[in-house]
């Protein structure tokens, strides 16, 4: 069929793991309702599979063999890799679709060099989104990863090209496919600065993203601007770029708040028109 849904959402582990520490309960529940709404939109699209473009955190890939891009190709995955009590998500098997993955990977590789993996242990970067989007684990998931962690990182322009390649690959399949990009915008996770958020930077980036302003998005510079103003967590914007590129149409920012710093990220939900 084709790509039938494209969006982005946050994935920080605190979103589930530190839910019970939150003081601003009203804001937390508002964010959760928007994630639930995103689930409803994906279900209403008729999607039979969900591509999750993630920024993995050394659950599978290490500096001995770090792919710029990788897509999973298995009928089942497992996660979370983290202590389930810490993430507050039970360890489980997540359904995949190896046949569909193989077809998508084959198509992507026509234009973007991409690794594949028949084993993949999900960390919070995928498990937190699935906790909200496919809470019954009843939709086939195709994990896709962009190297946002181990420099040299995947260049932004290549992340955009990866999204475009995924779009062509999805459109060539008979199945209805949804796609989400999941990462943080400005944040300083896993440091003593956890909870620091640059809201102005986030909103400007999201404005560019929703407008599909590729030129502006390509000007973000990792080593200077992004690292200084958005932290090393800002490197994960690659997942959002890929999702926007896959969609092609304008975005609608459905939710953003910087008022949940205990989650260590500006909490975001958005969808794009498929164009």
């Amino acid at each position: 069929m084709s790509l039938v849904y494209a969006g982005v959402l946050s994935h920080a582990p605190g979103i589930t793991g530190r839910a019970d520490l939150v003081k601003n309960v009203a804001r937390r529940d508002e964010f959760y309702r928007m994630l639930d709404h995103q689930r409803e939109e994906i279900e209403a699209s008729g999607a039979e599979a969900l591509v999750v473009i993630a920024a993995e955190h050394f659950a599978n890939f290490f500096m001995n063999n770090m792919p710029a891009f990788c897509i999973g190709m298995s009928d089942a995955y497992e996660g979370p890799i983290e202590d389930p009590g810490w993430l507050k998500i039970a360890r489980t098997r997540v359904p995949g679709n190896a046949d569909l993955s193989k077809r998508v990977i084959t198509a992507v590789m026509q234009t973007v060099d991409c690794a594949y993996a028949e084993e993949w242990k999900f960390d919070h970067g995928i498990m937190v989104p699935l906790h909200f989007l496919t809470p019954r684990y009843d939709m086939a998931v195709i994990p896709a990863n962009i190297n946002c962690q181990g420099p040299p990182l995947t260049p932004l322009a290549r992340a955009w090209a990866f999204g475009e390649a995924l779009r062509r690959a999805c459109d060539a399949q008979p199945e209805k496919i949804a796609l989400v990009g999941t990462g943080g915008i400005s944040h300083w996770p896993a440091t003593p600065d956890s909870g620091k958020i640059n809201e102005a930077w986030d909103r400007e980036f999201l404005d560019h993203l929703m407008a599909q302003d590729r030129d502006a998005l390509m000007r973000y510079d990792d080593d200077v601007q992004t690292y200084r103003d958005a932290g090393q967590g800002g490197f994960e914007i690659r997942t959002y770029l890929a999702a926007a590129a896959a969609a092609g149409g304008p975005g609608e920012l459905q939710y953003y708040t910087a008022e949940l710093p205990i989650f260590a990220v500006g909490c975001t939900v958005a969808r794009f028109a498929i164009d």
């Binding site: 520490l21 939150v22 003081k23 600065d193 909870g195 620091k196 205990i262």
Partner: peptide, 13 residues
């Protein structure tokens, strides 16, 4: 992953 906030806390929690 350097500390940039001088050791300050960024959450009311």
């Amino acid at each position: 992953y350097a500390m940039t906030g001088g050791g300050a806390s960024f959450t009311e929690e």
